[in-house]
């Protein structure tokens, strides 16, 4: 059973177009996307800036209210939850963000940082809090005496461990990982990715993993969602999707990923131009102005996300295959 299901999730932002003109535009940051995260599994989201992956994370975390669509957590619609249910949701969904230097309050001790979600949401004695903090520090591989230090005394990788410990304080079901390793040194990244994997195996966590490093996403995820300008263009099993992309954008994106070995020569698909503004997305398929395999229909009709073989693709190239 999925832990979290999003159906038709939409988020539009109002944007003032010019300084003096009163006319307003709508930024379609996330436009009618659906996905589900299975228990104990990782859903990876990839895409370039402006594709809506960070907005999606904010919607899941409740930092933004959706304009449309619904999020169901353990089968219950968030909109219909009573305050107790909302509190339960808050406790069950935690996050780890990109910048370990910005995500820890600089003037709080590590023990207070880690215990904050706990103290805020539950009535616990200080002895229990201390025990739980030490337990969490041990879980993420930090020594006990870290508890009484301040964030600036730790390196980036250690801070990210602290951020993970804090996210786990309430024993959540789902952790949103928004670029958790991209600010870290190369030799530290593997430590953190391994830690996240071990924690998932041990605690049965689900992850929503967002990163621009495709190899890291492919490595961490069970399922990958590819987004472009607020839309999902392809969803599928991580390994097969990474090996054989079906949507032309996915193909271009994965071909642009850097090789892990100099002998690894991939077909290079260079896309023309840059991602258009989400304020005024192209008609039809949003990718059609840059698509190397564009057809007349692409500019007119928006392709629906439909099953193609082992996955879902939103592309007119596969219209035939479906019929």
């Amino acid at each position: 059973m999925p832990v979290l299901e999003a159906a038709g999730l939409t988020k539009h932002f109002q944007a003032r177009r010019g300084l003096f003109s009163g006319s307003r535009g709508v930024v379609r940051a996330v436009d009618d996307i659906s996905f589900s995260i299975e228990s104990g599994r990782t859903l990876g989201v990839v895409g370039e800036s402006g594709c809506g992956k960070t907005t999606t994370a904010k919607l899941v975390l409740g930092l933004e209210e959706p304009t449309g669509g619904s999020i169901r957590f353990e089968g219950r619609d968030l909109q219909e939850l009573d305050p107790a249910g909302r509190r339960h949701y808050r406790k069950s969904v935690q996050a780890v963000f990109q910048d370990p230097f910005a995500s820890l309050s600089p003037r709080m001790r590590i023990s207070d940082i880690i215990a904050e979600p706990l103290v805020t949401n539950e009535t616990v004695t200080s002895g229990e809090v201390r025990r739980r903090v030490l337990e969490l520090l041990d879980l993420v591989g930090l020594p006990e005496r870290s508890a009484d230090l301040f964030p600036h005394e730790f390196s980036g990788g250690q801070r990210q461990r602290i951020a993970i410990a804090r996210a786990l304080a309430l024993s959540p079901k789902l952790v949103v990982l928004d670029e958790p390793v991209s600010a870290l040194d190369v030799s530290i990244r593997a430590q953190i990715l391994n830690l996240l994997r071990d924690l998932q195996d041990r605690l049965g966590l689900s992850y929503l993993f967002i990163a621009h490093d495709l190899a890291a996403v492919a490595h961490m995820s069970h399922t990958i969602v590819v987004m472009y300008l607020g839309k999902i263009v392809e969803v599928g099993d991580a390994q097969t999707l990474a090996r054989a992309p079906k949507h032309p954008y996915t193909a271009a994106l994965f071909s642009a990923a850097l090789p892990s070995h100099p002998d690894e020569r991939r077909e290079e698909i260079l896309l023309a131009g840059e991602v258009p503004s989400p304020l005024n997305p192209p008609s039809g398929c949003r990718f059609h102005p840059r698509c190397p395999q564009v057809m007349p229909v692409c500019g007119q009709q928006e392709p629906a996300l439909a099953q193609v073989g082992d996955r879902f693709v939103a592309c007119h190239l596969y219209d035939q295959a479906r019929h």
Binding site: L61, G62, L63, R87, R90, K91, V93, Q94, A95, F97, Q98, D99, A102, S103, L104, S105, P106, E116, P117, T120, N121, A163, R166, L170
Partner: peptide, 13 residues
Amino acid sequence: REFVRLAIVAGCS
């Protein structure tokens, strides 16, 4: 800053 966003996620008022 991210630590403020995380505090919201943690349920702080």
